[in-house]
Amino acid sequence: MSVSELDCIRLEPGHAPVRKLLVLLHGYGGDAGDMEPTGRVLRDGLPGTAVVCLNGPEPCAHWVEGRQWFAAMDFDAREVWDGVQVAAPLINRALDAELKHYGLNNRDMVIGGFSQGAMVALHVGPRRYVEPAGLLSFSGVLGGPSNLIEQMLVRPPVMLLQGADDDVVAPMYMEAAEGVLKSAGFDVEAHMIEELEHSIDEEAEAFALKFLRQRFEMDKSAA
């Protein structure tokens, strides 16, 4: 599949030129539209920032109208590790294409995602040749943690957000990712959100917005 086949929803600033880029990857069985509401909230709080919600490359095996970044049945450790490796080349090409589209560089971009999309973001980000501004994970899993130190090329700052009542991606996965990333020298901020299930709520969006403003150097006082 070519980059041109990755449909997307572009949420751009009304009049200001685009100076920063947030790319969001949806969850398993979803599509770019699932990330649009959160994308609009974040875009509206980030002057001069475009938010691009990418569509997964494949039809979802379990929900015919949904999309997936990689095939999965159980989302066990092997499936996640194999899957993120398969997805990575296409995602990297798509990220490069978006940066070229806006005339930006890696340090102007944060890569984020929800659930399966977050798994891909956490895999791709440390393996980019040039460090992105940050990585944003909603309910994600770090695939192949034992391979991180050997394969990583950069250490972008990371925010991990997780619902305490998530019954799809267990909260322990955020704690595990936080530990591995910190041990590898990453700057990690993690928040477990009480009474949140497998979704993104206003509290998660508020944490994400603060992180993005810091990474895009829009709020020097909070850095």
Rank of each mutant, 00 (worst) to 15 (best):
M1D: 14
D7L: 15
R10N: 01
P13E: 00
P13W: 02
P13A: 06
H15Q: 05
A16S: 07
P17N: 05
P17F: 06
V18K: 08
R19D: 13
R19M: 08
V23R: 12
L24Y: 03
H26V: 13
G29A: 06
G29F: 10
G30F: 11
G30C: 14
A32C: 05
M35R: 09
M35N: 02
G39H: 06
G39C: 10
L42I: 06
L42P: 04
L42Y: 01
R43D: 00
G45A: 13
G48R: 09
G48V: 04
T49Y: 07
T49E: 03
V51I: 00
V51R: 02
V52F: 00
V52L: 07
L54D: 10
G56D: 00
G56H: 02
E58A: 12
E58I: 04
E58W: 07
P59F: 11
G66S: 09
G66Q: 01
Q68L: 07
Q68F: 11
W69I: 01
F70V: 00
M73A: 15
M73N: 10
D74H: 10
F75Y: 11
F75H: 06
F75A: 09
D76E: 07
A77R: 12
E79T: 04
D82H: 08
G83Q: 01
Q85D: 03
L90R: 00
I91V: 14
N92E: 11
R93V: 01
R93Y: 00
A97I: 03
L99P: 03
L99F: 02
L99I: 00
K100Q: 12
Y102T: 03
Y102P: 01
G103F: 12
L104S: 05
N106D: 12
D108G: 04
M109W: 02
V110G: 01
G112Q: 12
G112N: 07
G113Y: 03
G113K: 00
F114W: 11
S115M: 07
S115V: 11
Q116E: 01
Q116R: 03
G117A: 00
V124Q: 00
G125W: 00
G125H: 07
R127N: 02
Y129S: 08
P132C: 13
A133R: 15
G134T: 04
L136D: 00
L136T: 08
F138Y: 15
F138I: 14
S139K: 15
G140I: 05
L142R: 06
L148V: 11
E150L: 15
L153W: 12
V154I: 15
R155T: 02
R155C: 04
V158E: 04
V158Q: 05
L160Q: 03
L161V: 04
G163D: 07
A164W: 10
D166S: 13
D166R: 12
D166I: 12
D167F: 12
V169N: 06
A170P: 09
P171R: 05
M172K: 15
M172V: 15
E175V: 13
A177L: 07
A177R: 02
G179H: 07
A184N: 00
A184F: 01
F186Q: 02
V188E: 07
E189M: 07
A190D: 01
H191P: 02
H191S: 12
I193T: 06
I193P: 06
E195L: 09
L196D: 08
S199M: 06
I200L: 09
A204T: 09
A204D: 01
F207C: 12
L212M: 13
Q214Y: 04
Q214M: 14
Q214N: 09
Q214A: 15
E217H: 11
M218V: 13
D219K: 14
A222K: 15
A222Q: 15
